[in-house]
Design a protein around this nucleic acid. Structure first.
Length: 430
RNA sequence: GGAGAGUUGUCCGAGUGGUUGAAGGAGCACGCCUGGAAAGUGUGUAUACUCGAAAGGGUAUCGAGGGUUCGAAUCCCUCACUCUCCGCCA
């Protein structure tokens, strides 16, 4: 959520930045400022009256103590009258605050100045490519056929047990999952990320904190009886670990990683896009999250991009990195790099990671702040600042598995990249 | 799931209707003292919003939300969480 004070001070800039993502409700900016003016006015009025009520009430206490009952009673009448007069102001203030909030949460994050203008995924900018696309032999098949051929994944069982999009991994397919998870977590912790195992269901406040609510409500499975949501990514529980916290500057940066299953309803997806492992309702993912000092967040973003890139390189997968254009960026992001790997049999680029800087958009909602320990004599109130939050996948399993299977297939087996030999215990799947 | 006890500031801990944003202690920060340190001593030590050029004010917050009252950390209701006992259980 953007900060009202910033919007007030920079309405032109805000509109200009929002236009980069083709956000159309630009009139919201003026409307928000007008509502905030109204809110301030009402709040001042309310607090002034409340202040009178408070001091009169104190007086009553003092009069009672002295036994001056008559004067006290007179004061009570005075307070009653004041309370009556404050009521309509209070109601109006609450209404105004609600309207302001409702409009404020409709504004997406402001794109960073380096974000290219553009409306559709076609306008994303390819930053760089790496790895080599393999030349497959003529009988090469897609991963869903390979999964059947080597008995790695049973999609039909999943259909029976739950429904489509819930595959059952089996034999070396299951073992490969375990090997990848272990490798990804080891890789992340070696880079200083602390490993977590968070809850897979979150409450409403957490889902709101990272921006899944109210925006993407339909994308999450929810358990209405208990008021919980299944996590669509471990970004949600991880970031919320620090909700409402004020951390010490010395404890920065906060680097977290977690393996969790992720649950997504993916309503509206169909056809070729959802074939095999390409798009699932439940999938495994290892995520990285950082909470950092605002001054260094863009440097950290590049560092995280390099981190994911090296991981993909170690898996010997052909990849490319895209800088998302304004129109294709997520609601909460200020700058996003997408990673895609090439899955050779399908001849498709599959998105495997979005590494984003959210600046203070999420931390403002979650009130994740830090105390500036350097400024010991700074005036009160200036010492607490919002952190910047960033995250990315490192990495999701299914699409990586799809590309590994397809790209490394031979006529008689599937060769695994060297880095996985130790984790998988074998060099090939056969 | 049943019965009971609890949830106060960075921490410990007082506080059952009236100058309590909150006693006291610890911690921390700064100063004094010291050759240096410890001890001692003084001062300060929440967050959000808001008024103000500033100095300095105001409002709200004692698990969350609502209620009673002129006035609530203190009384009532609902919910969440923690602990103890019983039940069930990987």
């Amino acid at each position: 959520m953007l900060q009202v004070a910033f919007i007030r001070n920079n309405p032109g800039l805000v509109k200009e930045r929002l236009a980069i993502r083709y956000f159309e409700e630009l009139s919201l900016v003026d409307s928000i400022i007008a509502l905030d003016d109204e809110r301030k006015k009402l709040q001042f009025e309310f607090e002034e009256t409340q202040s009178k009520i408070n001091s009169a009430s104190k007086e009553i206490g003092q009069l009672m103590a002295k036994g001056e009952k008559v004067a006290a009673e007179k004061n009570k009448e005075h307070v009653t009258a004041l309370k009556l007069s404050i009521q309509p102001i209070n109601i109006k203030l609450a209404e105004t605050e609600k309207m302001l909030h409702d409009e404020l949460i409709q504004l997406p994050n402001l794109p960073h100045t380096s974000v290219p203008a553009g409306k559709t995924p076609e306008e994303n900018v390819i930053v760089r490519e790496g790895g080599n696309k393999p030349k497959l032999f003529s009988g090469a098949i897609a991963h869903w056929d390979l999964a059947k051929k080597y008995d790695l994944i049973n999609f039909e069982s999943g259909n029976k047990i739950t429904g489509s999009g819930f595959p059952v991994y089996k034999n070396k397919g299951a073992k490969l999952q375990r090997a990848l998870i272990q490798y990804f977590l080891d890789y992340n912790t070696a880079a200083g990320y602390t490993e977590y195992q968070p809850p897979l269901m979150v409450n409403e406040a957490s889902a709101y904190g990272t921006g899944q609510l109210p925006d993407k409500e339909g994308q999450m499975y929810n358990i209405p009886v208990d008021g919980f949501y299944m996590i669509p990514t471990s970004e949600v529980p991880l970031t919320n670990i620090y909700r409402n916290d004020i951390v010490k500057e010395n404890d920065l940066p906060i680097k977290m990683t977690a393996y969790t299953p992720c649950f997504r309803r993916e309503s509206g997806s169909y056809g070729k896009d959802v074939r095999g492992l390409n798009r699932l309702h439940q999938f495994d993912k290892v995520e990285i999250v950082q909470l950092v000092h605002p001054e260094i967040s863009y440097g950290v973003l590049e560092e995280m991009v390099a981190h994911v890139e090296k991981l993909l390189q170690s898996l010997e997968l052909p990849y490319r990195i895209l800088k998302l254009c304004g129109g294709d960026m997520g609601f909460t992001s200020a700058l996003t790099y997408d990673f895609e790997v090439y899955s050779a049999a399908q001849q498709k680029w599959l998105e495997v990671s979005s590494v984003s800087n959210f600046e203070s958009f999420q931390t403002h909602r979650m009130k994740i702040r830090f105390k500036d320990t350097n400024g010991k004599t700074l005036p009160a109130g200036r010492q607490v600042q919002l952190l910047h939050s960033l995250n990315g996948s490192s990495l999701p399993l299914p699409r990586i598995v799809a590309a590994l299977l397809e790209n490394n297939q031979t006529e008689k087996n599937i060769k695994l990249p060297k880095v996985l030999h130790k984790y998988f215990g074998e060099k090939v799947i056969d």
